[in-house]
Design a protein around this nucleic acid. Structure first.
Length: 219
DNA sequence: CTCCCGATAT
DNA sequence: ATATCAGGAG
């Protein structure tokens, strides 16, 4: 069912994509990785942690742990120490080890390529799965709804929904499927550089003329 | 909803 | 002091 309001939202999305593409042509995932396993590990570590800190940790981590087997047989206390600066380190170490044990046992030591298999892994929900599918395998199963996409989608008036899963469905209806990956990259990049959580820089924002939240934030 | 974790910005 | 950082589970 396509209401007029939804058609308007689709137009607004295209405008946003166009403006952000011109503003941030180099927008790209900030996590550093060289294969699907490294991306999965980096994304798990990225929960409530800046990508910069994750990259700092993974630079040495990826030299020490090169395969799913390496994590699967790691000493838990050692792994905790190796990822400590990313925060939540006990839970993250436990999940990394458990996830990699499952990869070894059930997935031939490889990172799954389907949403269903990824979601079966402990500590992997839709946000993490979408990042891996999109950035490691070029698959658009859904739209990454992380803290930035969540915040910007609300501020830009693209959704009124509360939960991540509803917001993802809302966005999937108004963003062209071939742009799902690009949409997330651009919103995340813009969210980090301009539309911050704390103090959004509305005065330099290329979206200010179409942003319903602009007045709220202007100084 | 809380908990998990700690560094940093405001 | 408090909110936030490419969240997910109980």
């Amino acid at each position: 069912m396509l209401s007029d309001a939804q058609e308007e939202l689709k137009k607004r999305v295209l405008k946003i994509l166009d403006l952000l593409e011109k503003e941030h042509p180099d927008a790209r995932i900030a996590l550093k990785f060289s294969n699907p396993l490294e991306l999965l590990v980096a994304t798990i570590l990225a929960a409530q942690c800046t990508d910069e800190r994750v990259n700092q940790v993974t630079r040495s981590l990826f030299k020490k742990y090169r395969s799913a087997e390496d994590y699967a047989r790691a000493d838990l206390a050692t792994l905790e120490h190796d990822i400590k600066p990313t925060g939540f380190y006990r839970k993250k170490a436990q999940r990394l080890k458990e996830v990699c044990q499952i990869l070894v046992e059930k997935f031939n030591s490889e990172v799954p390529r389907t949403m269903e298999d990824l979601l079966s892994l402990p500590g992997v929900a839709r946000k993490t799965a979408n990042i891996v599918l999109s950035n490691a395998y070029g698959v658009n199963e859904g739209i990454i709804v992380d803290t930035h996409v969540l915040r910007l989608a609300k501020r830009l008036g693209l959704t009124q929904s509360k939960t991540r899963e509803k917001i993802e469905r809302d966005l999937m209806e108004i963003v062209p499927r071939e742009k799902w990956g690009r949409f997330a990259d651009l919103l995340i990049f813009h969210g980090r550089r301009v539309c911050n959580a704390r103090k959004p820089k509305c005065e330099i924002c290329v979206l200010k003329d179409l942003c319903p939240s602009r007045a709220t934030f202007s100084t």
